[in-house]
Design a binder for these strands. Structure first.
Lengths: 351, 351
DNA sequence: CAGAGGCTGGAGAGCGCTCTCCAGCCTCTG
DNA sequence: CAGAGGCTGGAGAGCGCTCTCCAGCCTCTG
């Protein structure tokens, strides 16, 4: 079974070969493959058969050389501005279940369209520059950007480079770029409502990093809602969206307010840490202290007790990001847009 | 500030433009950029300056059309053969901290070489076919494959397609493909040694799915080592590498062997589930029952108490996969190889 | 029935690179 | 000092597609 021009090594069968086999021109084969213009059904059939028998596979590079499209989308996870922890950045990021849901939503939208995202991490300014260069080399038609820090300069750099891009979460600085986001304020109001409904009167909150707009919205939204319910003073300890920072923040809150009976943590990972601290201090959850998280990550169900939390439709949001990006790529002149999603309260055992 | 051929939209500056600006031929510019053959240092300098002033960025498609290399690597996460759970596959997969470490290791090796992996999920046979077609279209020079199930046919399909590929973990069926793996048996021996050293005499194990070679190796390795230590009978409950399956397996073990004082779970997620079950049954860990996990995932430290576990150098293994793949791509004739990594015991509180 | 206009297939240019081949120069050796 | 051989830069083909332009045919209308 000798096959000299091995079909594997670059599949050396070209459009020319198919055209010859079908007895038509290259242009006609191209038209059949790309489904443009009317082609006689009988000829279409002949061409398709020729493709099948030759085992032809289009050369992607040749195609994108002329179309000036790569057909590729970059998924950029950017963390510039954040301080390093023990694990290398990509490990750290993917340990967060949130990113799994983002990836899931993006893939669910792109894959049926034959697109697979290129995964890029840009945790430092230097690497961001490399990533940007890589994108400008025409390695992707556009970028989906998820930043872990608000001070991220990458969104602006992408806009300046003229590269189609969509953000997950509103950028800290106002720049002309499309994004999806959740209504953080509404989510915080749901959390407040739940704690009040459970009869909690001495409530505190563990916020995310306060340079992140989302953290700000959750904090002020929570405080405003609690004020409406007649609770004017809500102590806050700032965390860093990590398990350990949540534990530490809970320790600080307990030290200053040992009589608290309710906590709203701005994400589930911190809520999980808070549960640990509460247990170590002998507090029962939810009997002594009710805890509400945010995100409905898989951490929420792995906790003991399982977390009552605020779910944003991350998969839907991520899919929408991808949809918006494809629109921008297909219609370059299009104005930027945003889309805000409504969160929902997920009641489990912690509150 | 008008720029008609916008530098963003495909950066219409070509090698030709740089050559003209530098007063040399296209070939010379190409040589400087790719660092092939000697070029007069003075000319090199002139060319570099011309590149800088023109803002030239090589066209990736044109290059790969002639080199027949894309410069891209696919990271394929394959789950064919597994039964679906509630979350969509990609979300599920990335929720497992293990994949974060794999991605981290791969990125740490590829990124300095200017390569960013294309992320592909292939959870069903149908999607595997699509993924394979996509790869054969020349969208990547090779594939790094992480399978979640042993019966995965994708490794064989990749070999048949002649596509350079490297697996994480030895394939179930013997096929000529390179892989990295951990010495599962040695890891299980470490776990057995630890439990024996802690004076445990009634020890059970929670295995992974028994159609996975790794699960088999861990189970037999554990049983063999315990036999050496004088414990001939080790009950086993089969799990599915998930939190919940670990919890369920622990329930079964406790029902049949209420007096057990030590458990080896074949991964941390199941160990975490086991801890939950033990707590619900009023067992103290490690006083009543010592628990050893496997993987040293972030679940190990999020547990209460933190898990004593077996760490495989996942990041190193993933980086090695990438290195092996690049070797295969650069030297197509090269025979397949394997590399087995030694695990280490990480002592925390659970045993 | 003649002419206009639409539709379909082919010819051929061209996308932006790399790489082979060759010319010309320079260096070294006998 | 002549000739061989190495080295460096340029010319030009060619990678495999798409897309424009055009020819030829067919259909429809006046």
């Amino acid at each position: 079974m000798r096959q000299d021009p091995s079909p594997a090594s670059g599949s050396s069968i070209t459009l020319e070969d198919v055209a010859r086999a079908a007895g038509v021109s290259r242009a006609t084969v191209s038209r059949v493959i790309n489904g443009i213009r009317n082609v006689d059904p009988a000829i279409q059939e002949t061409v398709r058969r020729a493709i099948a028998t030759t085992g032809y596979v289009p050369n992607h590079a040749a195609r994108s050389l002329v179309t000036r499209r790569t057909g590729a989308i970059a998924l950029v996870v950017s963390g510039a501005g954040g301080e390093g922890e023990d694990a290398p950045f990509p490990s750290q990021v993917f340990t967060d279940p949130f990113f799994g849901r983002v990836v899931g939503g993006i893939v669910s939208f792109l894959r049926p369209r034959g697109i697979h995202p290129i995964l890029m991490f840009a945790e430092t300014a230097e690497i961001q520059a490399q990533v940007l260069t890589h994108l400008r080399h025409g390695n992707a038609d556009g970028a989906l950007l998820v930043s872990t820090h608000a001070a991220d300069p990458l969104p602006r750099l992408l806009v300046e480079a003229g590269l189609p891009a969509v953000l997950f979460a509103r950028p800290a600085e106002p720049i002309p770029i499309s994004y999806v986001d959740v209504d953080h304020r509404a989510g915080a109001e749901l959390a407040a409502g739940r704690l009040v409904a459970r009869g909690r009167r001495r409530v505190a909150t563990i916020s995310g990093p306060l340079d992140v707009p989302a953290s700000q919205s959750r904090l002020t939204g929570f405080r405003d809602a609690m004020a409406v319910h007649g609770h004017p003073y809500i102590p806050c300890a700032e965390g860093g969206f990590t398990h350990h920072s949540g534990e530490a923040a809970m320790e600080r809150l307990l030290a200053e307010h040992p009589d608290l009976d309710g906590v709203f943590a701005a994400n589930d990972l911190m809520a999980q840490g808070a549960l640990l601290a509460l247990r170590q201090h002998g507090r029962r959850v939810p009997d002594d202290v009710a805890v509400v998280g945010f995100d409905d990550s898989s951490a929420a169900t792995a906790c003991s007790p399982p977390l009552t939390t605020i779910r944003h439709p991350v998969e839907d949001m991520a899919a929408e990001m991808a949809r918006m990006l494809l629109t921008h790529i297909e219609q370059p002149g299009r104005p930027v847009t945003s889309r805000i999603f409504e969160p929902v309260l997920v009641v489990r055992d912690s509150a």
